[in-house]
Design a binder for these strands. Structure first.
Lengths: 152, 152
DNA sequence: TCTGAAACATGCCAGGA
DNA sequence: TCCTGGCATGTTTCAGA
């Protein structure tokens, strides 16, 4: 499927604020309300628009401490990877987990309240998972940029 | 501000799907439509709910290649940091940028189409920024988990 | 694929418990 | 903080260009 410039503009607007009404969007895009409506429906049907969500202020809900954890497994058989991946997916503190190339196997993005909570997480949850070789934690000092907007 | 169990449940529901109507939410939470409406407005007013957005399928919009880039600056004076940070914020390929503790200064999450596009980005954009010491790229092999849901 | 209008659902605001 | 009720505003469908 090809996205024309109007689709791209529409997706940018929805990525910045999905609460805009179709009427508001129609004005910005010089289209009718129905035309905008149908474009959105098409993008949803095609799966280009994955979902509509609310983003919270992490600080205000007491999850402002972000840690990146680089992790190695002790073995790399398919079974080990599968088990580890299904376990790590269950952990709510882990927002993101990627299998990566390079010196370590996985990179995890973890959100908790503070250092104390992270220590607790590390000791009681992460390092109790099977097959974990080593971990290396990198702490966030400052969030410079954090967006979900993909520019097409 | 304190969040009661109903608020937490409401936030979880909105974080998974913000398109739910207040009517639908009222049924799930055993409240009236207005009560749900007022709780949501309160959460928006307080800034707990930061924003409503659409999330796209990165693969389908040709931005499925994710790279983590660890970066060092050549100097660490405040001016250098500020300039670098304002420049990196402008780059649409950089979804996230954190100032971190440890062996390097920044960790960047970058999305592009493929390896070729990444090379192009690295050569023409990232390494042309001032004061950059070294970069180290880690490529994603597989996305195990990627959520925006913060469990409170 | 677009427009415009009509039917339907939802959001939103009173007023009161 | 909650509820009931009603008006305003939104979404969605459909015929026609």
């Amino acid at each position: 499927m090809t996205l024309d410039p109007t689709d791209k503009k529409l997706l940018l607007l929805l990525q910045t604020d999905s609460k805009r009404t179709t009427k508001e969007l129609s004005i910005k895009l010089n289209l009718s309300v129905t035309a905008v409506y149908e474009r959105i429906k098409k993008l949803e049907r095609e799966g280009i628009i994955d979902k509509y969500v609310v983003l919270l202020d992490k600080e205000k809900v007491g999850k402002g401490f972000i840690v990146f954890c680089h992790l190695k497994l002790i073995q790399h058989t398919k079974d080990f990877l599968t088990i580890f991946e299904s376990q790590v997916t269950q952990l709510p503190e882990v927002l993101e987990c990627y299998h990566v190339s390079g010196d370590y196997d996985y990179i995890l993005k973890i959100v908790v309240k503070d250092m104390k909570a992270y220590r607790e997480f590390l000791v009681t949850k992460l390092t109790t998972l099977h097959h974990i070789g080593s971990t290396q934690s990198t702490f966030m000092i400052n969030e410079v940029k954090n967006t979900t907007i993909v520019t097409i």
